[in-house]
């Protein structure tokens, strides 16, 4: 497994430093070619919006899952997982139909007097669809984490005179931070290298990192420059994970989520 991952990685790294001649040209080009930085910062911004969006939607949802009966919980879990199991391409095309010109979203806004809301081909459209696609990656670690929080602590706080809201804010919220961090790393890291949604819903004018990589590899046949960009993306993601791990999150929480449901 590690050979399968590391060998091509090492080859990419080697090539990015030696082709056509030894040096860091491909890396310095990333900062000076006037396009990579624009696209990387656009991708960072999109990933950030998607991460925040999934937290805002996923947190209350996961919290609710810890408070309902087993049957309802299974229903809620299924509601999260069914889209997760549906073909990625099919889901993205469904979004395409929703957000294109004269699509339901456009018509809905037109009905209330706002014309020309065509999200297709914009970063906004990509972000909205990616939030939906990424939601399971946020809800599952969040739920897994929240399910492990001892609710007796909240009862104790209330017995000592705290209001339920205050008890939630002072006890539950800090204890759930680990889940938020885990979910955020996952969603952010996946969003940063995401290809399908930007390719279908975005536009070449608003391309993200994965499209740039695809273009350098498939169209320009510049494997060395693509390798350099890939290495930078990888290092960036690893740095992010390391920092997040220090903050107490962990990606492996994801695997435990379903098994741990009470």
């Amino acid at each position: 497994m590690s050979v399968a991952v590391l060998a091509p990685l090492a080859m990419s790294l080697w090539r990015s430093l030696t082709d056509p001649s030894l040096g860091l040209t491909h890396y310095t080009d990333l900062f000076t070619d006037g396009i990579t930085l624009t696209i990387v910062s656009r991708t960072l911004m999109t990933s950030l919006i998607v991460t925040v969006g999934t937290v805002v939607l996923g947190y209350p949802y996961a919290y609710l899952m810890t408070r309902v009966s087993t049957t309802t919980r299974i229903l809620m879990l299924t509601a999260v997982l069914v889209p997760f199991w549906t073909s990625m391409t099919a889901r993205n095309f469904a979004w395409l139909i929703l957000v294109q010109r004269d699509g339901p979203v456009d018509k809905m806004f037109s009905a209330v007097g706002i014309d020309g809301v065509v999200l297709h081909g914009t970063v906004a459209g990509v972000a909205v669809a990616m939030i939906q696609v990424m939601l399971p990656f946020m809800v599952l670690p969040l739920y897994s984490h929240m399910a492990g929080i001892d609710r007796k602590l909240l009862l104790a706080a209330q017995a000592l005179g705290s209001t339920p809201i205050r008890a939630f804010r002072k006890i539950f919220l800090p204890l759930s931070v680990g889940g938020v961090v885990s979910g955020s790393i996952l969603v952010f890291a996946l969003s940063f290298g995401f290809y399908v949604t930007p390719a279908i819903l975005g536009s070449p004018q608003q391309s993200l990192v994965a499209q740039l990589l695809g273009q350098r590899t498939l169209q320009l046949l510049d494997f060395a420059a693509a390798g350099a960009l890939g290495i930078v993306v990888l290092l960036f993601t690893l740095a992010l994970v390391t920092v997040a791990n220090r903050m107490g999150g962990s990606v492996s929480a994801l695997g435990a989520s379903v098994a741990k449901g009470k």
């Binding site: 991952v5 091509p8 990685l9 990419s12 890291a189 290298g193 290809y195 990192v209 994965a210 990589l213 695809g214 350098r216 590899t217 494997f223 693509a226 390798g227 960009l229 890939g230 290495i231 993306v233 990888l234 993601t237 690893l238």
Partner: peptide, 8 residues
Amino acid sequence: ASATLLLA
């Protein structure tokens, strides 16, 4: 992350 690199 290296899935993208494999492409390259």
